[in-house]
Amino acid sequence: MPNDLNQTQVSVVASQPLDQLKRGGAKIKRKKTRDYHELHPVVNTIFSVLLGIFTIMCVFPFIYVIIISLTSEESIVRNGFQIIPAEWSTDAYRYLWNVKDQLLGSYGVTILITVVGTVISVLMISFYAYAISRPQFKYRRFFTFLAFFTMLFSGGLVPTYIVVTQFLGLKNTIWALILPLVMNAFYIIIMRTFFMKSVSESILESARIDGASEWRIFFQIVFPLSLPGIATIALFSTLGYWNDWFTALLYIDDPKLVPLQALLMKIEANLEFMKQNVDVGLMQQSLFDTLPQDSAKMAMVVIATLPIAVSYPFFQKYFISGLTIGGVKE
């Protein structure tokens, strides 16, 4: 042990100016040899456990929902939602397979709006942001302000609702799920900053001298150069569409156009309704008996969440790099 201490001191002596030796040396004497960039092992353990508990709190609900979806309905009625169920069962999934038409339909709607929406969104945002990032564009200040102002002052829910339903007539159309989420001033400003930083004027100038048109420059030079930024916007957009239920809540009544997240809300209401009317007739009673109520709901939650849960650890990297794209400053 004394040996260890000596070594530490030697290395400290070597790396410190003389006048600080006393102070630094006195502090270090109490500790054992280790990397001083690191936390004390005890503190490190405490922090690891604390963060570990919080991490488990973040992912546990999903695991819990998976377990409930695999619990037999009888067991749920008798024991409630157990972490280790008394009786396992795949009835919920079998039941969902029987009503798969609506489920697949909603899955289709969600995938369609996610793909179409993301493509339109990325194109429109990057065109707009690229134009206002170029010094040659004379009116860039005006158009930057036009986008930026919408971050400060919003039109509000009711006027937007009236515009979408009465002026644009989008109620109960697939476009009502796509168009309202296409643009977002915040993303425009982020992308503008990104284009300013990552696409230098000199590269574009040489392409212009070579006779490339602005469109060609955009798709063959700017787009590939800005891929990290564009991937981030695409990711935000994809998530926005996949998780959207609010526009469906406002604009969609037609069961054929209900996206997955909204279906989850509706299923809830339908099952509640059936539960309340359970005494109305024998017919419904028997229907109610065969319906794996809670486990089916949870199975739907699992089906709706699984694609994100398995894919996000892979795209998380882009997500994080996107966050560091830069400030939103003017």
């Binding site: 919003s154 039109g155 006027p159 009236i162 515009v163 309202p180 296409v182 643009m183 001033a185």
Partner: peptide
């Protein structure tokens, strides 16, 4: 898009 989905609702206020 901005005119339809942001500025028109602002006028609608």
């Amino acid at each position: 898009w901005l005119l339809l989905f942001s500025y028109l609702p602002m006028f609608g206020q």
